[in-house]
Design a binder for these strands. Structure first.
Length: 652
RNA sequence: GCCAGUGUAGCUCAGGGGUAGAGCGCUUCCUUGGUAAGGAAGAGGUCGUGAGUUCAAUUCUCACCACCGGCUCCA
């Protein structure tokens, strides 16, 4: 007999070899029917973390257990992973001879990478695959786990001619290899899996994409099929509605609706054109940050949009990115070449170098809203989040080595203030370190890398900022701390960034005179709280669904006169508001009042003022807040004060 | 750059080998309306670009361009 401990601390005895399913059954058959996976922590597991088990897998020793129903992320993962096997089985039945790469569960659903040989899978075929999956699911196929030797595993997939699985197996250690079989389909898989396929009730295959084998663009491109499944049809319907809702928050759609920005094929791919309202919004964001930076002792600078190629040879960027960027600009002067600036740092280094610096002058903080140009691959361009011309809210801090941590922490403060003011709550702070196994990708000495990586992690820790560490994600010149935020569809984008750089000061020969009268090398910190105005605006639009905070939004107040008789009063109200720096306009078009209010709502204007006979007589306005809330009638002075106070509070 | 999809009016989209449609928007007129769509008339498109097949191409074929979903990349 073995002891099984439950999450509430109670202990029950079972025969050795009992499964999670048996255990659930001993509590209630209903529970047994609901559970999809179990976290089992065997007594011998020193980590205490345990393993997710198939609910049919025997438990052979004392263990604690947690049973997972659909609501648990662990269960969803198992459900979707099994669904990818189910899809693979359907695919193999419909397209005999195809080969399989990998097929994991993802955040929302699963995919499988498949080599269809000569066949090109098109979207029209997905329906038939979905139907086959449902058919197979209904036949209640068990997922059968078997442990196999490496030799047998290789033999199996060699006979099948699946070079991808063979490659995966050859990387595995003998004795750890398991197969899972559902129906006629056997896959190399660590598991865990569902008990059987019958719980999969609803299937939607979402899209087809090409994906390089093992993420390597030099290798075969496999066909990746994305899908999602649910244990109930209604859950699928809800999910699809949710997806539609998310698409309505797409910044590209909102940007068009609110007339913030546009693109032109004639101007060029990835080159955003900011429309008047968008430019207005952008300037307001800039002003907001300028004020903070002034408080933190930043000095504004302005530098040209091009720079001599030698500048980038010196910085090392030419060597790293020269081949993949906009080509150099030539001049009538033989041999003279300029580059569109891909970043501002080299220019700022030259500003630092323009005069001798004393240790007393440091830190020197040079800030610029600098527009840069990068030739991003055409397939990578995406709305405002990935463009070829964008403006960084850039600054470079030239600091003494003993000032790094303090300066780094101040930058964290600025970024957190910006995020707080704009109500970004779900961000991730990511520390990006270099890949120690691929040092040739990076420039700079081991010693400086170690110092910089330590400085970042210490600063984050002292600020109490929870971080995730990603190895191999560092910039080529230094490690960084990035703030990542998700868009409407769950894609993650980097916004704010702070980067320590020991390299450029070296390359540019930057110096300061120390208290000892000797020359020393400053350390450089790159930082951009927004990242770029383009990306920041994009993510902000998706987070707010276009309902921007009052202080930021281009149109704050829409004044709707009840009829044209009151247009003059409306204009007077508008002028008075404008004089108080409130962005108001009058909609006195020949349309019904209901229609004009509706359009004000659709334009996401925070306040609408309805004015008619009564208001004109009393010098008041009838206030309607976005979303249909009738705030009531108030004097114009009171309204002006309320708006001004609300803006102040938002910026506090 | 790679794989798949899309490209028709300012916007959202329907259509389809015989030179085009809807709704919204826009213009004009009627209506002067009190908190999410009043009515009428009108203007507006070489159907992404180029080539090919055909008596005839916006429709079929090919190439290119752009956009969209992914992959790779992201200073």
């Amino acid at each position: 007999m073995i002891n099984i401990t439950f999450p509430d601390g109670s202990v029950k005895q079972f025969e050795a070899g009992v499964s999670a399913y048996d255990i659930a059954m001993s509590i209630s058959p209903r529970l047994a029917g609901d559970i999809l996976a179990a976290t089992v922590v065997p007594a011998s597991d020193a980590t205490g973390k345990g393993t997710i088990y198939d609910i049919t897998r025997p438990i052979n020793e004392d263990a604690s257990i947690k049973l997972h129903k659909w609501e648990d992320p662990e269960a969803k993962k198992v459900f979707w992973h099994s669904s990818s096997h189910l899809m693979a089985e359907a695919l193999e039945a419909l397209y005999p001879g195809i080969k399989f790469g990998i097929g994991p569960a993802i955040e929302n659903g699963f995919y499988y990478d498949v080599d269809f040989g000569g066949h090109t899978l098109v979207e029209a075929e997905l329906k038939a695959i979905e139907d086959k999956m449902i058919e197979l699911a209904r036949s209640k196929e068990q997922f059968v786990r078997t442990e196999v030797s490496k030799a047998d595993a290789l033999k199996n997939f060699t006979e099948k001619g699946d070079q991808y699985k063979c490659e995966l197996i050859s990387d595995l250690e003998d004795g750890t290899i398991t197969f899972y079989q559902n129906g006629n389909f056997t896959d190399l898989c660590r598991g865990p899996h569902l008990k059987d396929t019958s719980v999969v009730k609803a299937v939607k295959l979402l899209s087809i994409a090409g994906a390089y084998w093992r993420g390597d663009e030099k290798r075969n491109m496999l066909t990746r099929i994305y899908g999602i499944t649910f244990p109930k049809k209604s859950l699928l319907d809800e999910y699809l509605v949710l997806l539609e809702e998310a698409k309505k928050r797409d910044h590209r759609k909102i940007g068009k609706e609110m007339e913030l920005f546009t693109f032109s094929q004639k101007v060029g791919q990835g080159l955003p054109l900011w429309l008047p309202k968008g430019a207005d919004l952008r300037f307001r964001l800039e002003l907001f940050l300028r004020k903070i930076q002034q408080q933190y002792g930043y000095l504004p600078v302005v530098t040209p949009h091009i720079g001599n190629k030698d500048l980038y040879v010196t910085s090392g960027h030419w060597e790293h990115y020269g081949q993949d960027s906009f080509r150099p600009i030539t001049t009538p002067q033989e041999g003279e070449e300029y580059l569109l600036k891909p970043m501002n740092c080299p220019h700022h280094c030259e500003i630092y170098r323009s005069k001798p610096r004393s240790y007393k002058d440091l830190p020197v903080r040079l800030a610029e809203f600098g527009t840069v140009y990068r030739y991003e691959q055409s397939g990578e361009l995406h709305g405002l989040t990935r463009v070829r011309s964008f403006t960084q809210d850039d600054a470079h801090l030239f600091v003494r080595p003993d000032q790094i941590k303090e300066e780094f922490e101040k930058v964290i403060d600025i970024i957190l203030y910006v995020f707080k003011t704009l109500d970004f709550k779900n961000y991730k702070a990511q520390v990006s370190l270099r890949d120690p196994n691929n040092k040739t990708k990076y420039i700079g000495s081991d010693e400086n890398w170690a110092k910089a990586e330590a400085a970042i992690q210490e600063a984050a820790q002292e600020k109490g900022l929870p971080t995730v560490v990603e190895t191999g994600e560092a910039a080529f010149y230094g490690p960084k701390l990035d703030f990542m935020v998700k868009d409407a569809l769950g894609r993650e984008w980097q916004l704010g960034t702070i980067q320590v750089d020991y390299n450029l000061p070296e390359r540019f020969g930057l110096e300061f005179v120390g208290s000892d009268g000797m020359k020393h090398r400053p350390v450089m910190i790159h930082r951009a709280p927004f990242g770029s105005l383009e990306r920041f605006v994009a993510v902000l639009l998706e987070h707010t669904a276009g309902k921007l905070p009052l202080w930021l939004t281009p149109d704050q107040v829409n004044i709707v006169p009840v009829s044209e008789k009151f247009a003059d009063y409306a204009k007077k109200v508008c002028d008075l508001l404008n004089n108080s720096e409130i962005r108001a306009s009058v909609d006195d078009r020949n349309e019904t009042i209901g229609k004009r209010i509706r359009e004000g709502e659709l334009k996401r204007i925070p306040y609408q003022l309805i004015v008619g006979e009564q208001e004109e007589k009393d010098g008041t306005v009838s206030v309607r807040k976005q979303g249909g809330v009738n705030v009531g009638t108030m004097s114009l002075e009171d309204f002006t004060k309320a708006i001004t106070d609300e803006v102040k509070a938002q910026l506090a």
